[in-house]
């Protein structure tokens, strides 16, 4: 059987170009394996052939993600690969993001299996674990010796078309996929009871259906005197000035907007609209106060119920926006609001 054609992606360091001083280097290709690729090739034997290596500087990639990805895809396409391997990136953040993004783009563009390796806390891991097989590695290049066999084992299994076991068995990070499997030995009720008993005894157990974990934040103390409080408005409902000047996307918003509402008492059909996709925009477009209650808050400000309404509101579109991005936008908004002596925030979602 002919070897499976693979392309390997590396950064400037592992591509043997140089360190941080070469991190601005634009993508280029080299035929055959380079650096960690030679070790992978050795493990692959004649089943997978690394036909080419694409190398790009980490800084260049992360500062120009879209352009760099396009350039890299063009280089990869030239090799007509059947598989893409990236890294391993260990705990290098920029390299991890680059490996993840290159894998995700290649999986989408060429519909080929994509494999990379990262330390679980690499920011690239959470961003791209759903799109790529991310083999769990140690946190530094000192762990190359264990990373290479782990990655090559998974790559060979995929190249042979063998069925993969669970992420824990195969050594890659969970992708959030669920499979139905048949348990021939023990039925569900007895497995559940066994799990419960272990839990009660404080023994380790493994759920068959893990829930996504969301961290919690401590509730902040209540506002003491509403009459003196400055209230800020934030929305994920996509309310923007008419014409959507910041071009916030209807889905998977790439940014948020900040809008001055000094002197604005009411949002009208002529002045504001929603940029949000995924729901019928008619009601919000007719009267955006239905999503962002500026009319009522202005009224309360006049009546002295609240001290004041902050004269800038923030908006993004929640439709299809990842948790990581939502968190990023909220962090940036939060830093701005921290400078404004805000006492409380109302966030509205559609």
């Amino acid at each position: 059987m002919a070897a499976v054609r693979a392309v390997h992606y590396l950064n400037q360091f592992f591509g043997q170009i140089g360190g941080e001083d070469k991190a601005d280097i634009t993508p280029f290709q080299k035929d055959g394996p380079v650096g960690p690729g030679t070790a992978l090739q050795k493990a692959f034997g004649d089943e997978i052939e690394i036909v080419g290596t694409v190398i790009c500087g980490d800084t260049y990639f992360n500062e120009n993600i879209e352009t760099a990805t396009t350039e890299i895809m063009e280089l990869i396409a030239g090799y007509q690969p059947q598989m893409l391997i990236a890294g391993p990136a260990f705990n290098a953040g920029r390299y991890g993001v680059a490996c993840g993004a290159v894998c995700a783009a290649a999986a989408e563009k060429f519909a080929i299996p994509v494999i990379t390796g990262m330390y679980e806390e690499n920011p690239g891991a959470d961003l791209y674990r759903k799109q790529a097989y991310i083999v769990r590695t140690g946190d530094s290049a000192a762990k190359m010796r264990t990373a290479i066999p782990a990655m090559s084992k998974l790559a060979l299994k995929i190249a042979r078309g063998e069925e993969l076991g669970t992420p824990a068995d195969e050594g890659y990070l969970e992708q959030g996929l669920r499979f139905n499997t048949m348990h021939h030995t023990e039925r569900g009720s007895s497995r559940a009871v066994a799990m419960l008993l272990k839990k009660l005894k404080g023994e380790p157990y493994q759920s068959e259906y893990p829930m996504p974990s969301f961290s919690r934040v401590t509730p902040r103390p209540a506002i003491k005197d509403l009459k003196k409080a400055k209230i800020a408005l934030v929305t994920s409902g996509g309310i923007v000035p008419k014409g959507n000047p910041d071009r916030i996307e209807a889905s998977s918003a790439s940014h948020f907007g900040r809008y001055d509402i000094t002197g604005i008492e009411d949002l009208t059909e002529d002045t504001f609209e929603t940029a949000h996709g995924g729901y019928d925009p008619v009601y919000a477009n007719l009267d955006a106060d239905r999503v962002l209650p500026i009319d009522v808050l202005r009224q309360m400000e006049k009546e002295g119920v609240i001290g004041s309404l902050h004269n800038v509101y923030y908006a993004t579109v929640g439709n299809g926006t990842s948790v990581a991005n939502a968190q990023k936008y909220a962090h940036a908004i939060g830093l701005e609001l921290s400078e404004e002596n805000i006492d409380g925030i109302i966030l509205t979602s559609t």
Binding site: F214, S215, V217, A222, V234, A326, A330, I333, I346, S349
Partner: peptide, 29 residues
């Protein structure tokens, strides 16, 4: 967003939302 705002600005944040279960799961206070 609710949680990140509460953490960053260090003031109470209220989430007015239609799909309460999502807000509960994500962790609005």
């Amino acid at each position: 967003m609710v949680k990140e705002l509460e953490e960053t600005v260090n003031v109470p944040v209220v989430h007015i939302c239609t799909i309460v279960p999502i807000s509960l799961t994500v962790g609005a206070n």
